[in-house]
Design a binder for these strands. Structure first.
Length: 296
DNA sequence: AAGAGGTGCAACCGCCGCGTC
DNA sequence: TGACGCGGCGGTTGCACCTCT
């Protein structure tokens, strides 16, 4: 029987799943989701093949696991990646490469699939526009010098505008609240507080590059150790060893520092803050500098 | 208004490592 | 010790939706 992505039933041969008979593929239905959620709530996750069978799902164990981990799990965060998360992804990817699951471990609520998709659709797109290999040192250098500062700038702009709007707009005015703000769980965070001194990110040496996330956590690795943590609305990042993949010296040997930036209290999702982070103009800016031999 | 092309992302595939027998 | 099953991972696909012309 032919493979279909539209949810038809098919049979698989030459593997252990064929004893299940007809297996479903493609998009999950609400009914299937409900079955899976209820079963895991009652019995826990794991033993996916048995789970699929016992739950009455005509799916492979792998399919159930994927659906649960990437979509149904309660702590999964939806919506666009925040600039802080994007910075963290760029940093961690420079360190570990395409180790998506490892990177995802340091972005609470984000899945490896989501991060992988972000990298392929956003980051690699920029690399293509620049005609640079996204895994090359050159591209990492470009990211470090042009993209990351831009992300941090966006964060600062957002903070500033949030602060301004809190004075301009009446809190009771429904027209001042966007749809996404209403939907965002971050909306419940405290109102804007003091804005710290902007980080010095345009330094070519990048000795003090801020790393922020929307959650507090610490990073420990076999090779080095640094941490990112949130205290109140502030995010602190520090490291104790050299940072960066051995083959990617762009990020290496930063000072041990505790750096402060702020978390936005509201709508990171669904507005221009998270979009168009590196537009064509900036691409050309980069290429211009490249022409001047600035990156060579 | 409609078709073409682009984009985002859920889901699948194949491979690998580990545990068990 | 090799076969087998399973879970996990990274790469890839293809569909729905969006934007552009």
């Amino acid at each position: 029987m032919m493979v279909s992505k539209s949810g038809e039933i098919q049979s698989l041969s030459n593997n252990n799943e064929e004893r299940f008979g007809e297996l479903r593929r493609g998009p999950w239905t609400l009914e299937e989701d409900t079955l899976l959620i209820k079963y895991i709530a009652a019995h826990g996750e794991g033993r996916w093949n048995a789970l699929a069978k016992c739950a009455g799902l005509r799916r492979t164990g792998k399919s159930c696991r994927l659906r649960w981990l990437n979509y149904l799990k309660p702590d999964i965060k939806r919506g666009n990646l925040t600039p802080q998360e994007q910075i963290l992804i760029l940093e961690l990817h420079s360190k570990w490469g395409n180790r998506w699951s490892k990177i995802a471990q340091h972005l609470p609520g984000r899945t490896d699939n989501e991060i992988k998709n972000y990298w392929r659709t956003r980051v690699q797109k920029q690399a293509r526009q620049l005609k640079i290999d996204s895994n090359s040192k050159k591209f990492i250098e470009a990211v470090k010098r042009f993209w990351m500062p831009r992300l941090i700038e966006k964060m600062e702009q957002h903070q500033t505008s949030t602060l301004s709007s809190s004075f301009i707009s009446s809190p009771s005015s429904s027209s001042s609240i966007s749809t996404m703000e209403k939907q965002s769980p971050l909306n419940s965070l405290p109102s804007p507080i003091t804005i710290p001194e902007p980080p010095k990110t345009d330094n070519p040496e990048n000795k003090n590059l801020n790393i922020c996330s929307t959650d507090s956590f610490q990073l420990h690795d076999d090779d080095d150790c640094y941490h990112v943590e949130i205290m109140g609305n502030s995010c602190y990042a520090g490291e104790e060893e050299g940072f960066g993949h051995p083959a990617m010296s762009a990020f290496e040997s930063r000072d041990i520092s505790m750096l402060e930036c702020q978390l936005a209290p509201d709508d990171w999702f669904g507005n221009d803050v998270a979009d168009s982070l590196w537009n064509i103009d900036e691409t050309w800016q980069y290429r211009k500098l490249e022409d001047f031999g600035d990156l060579s």
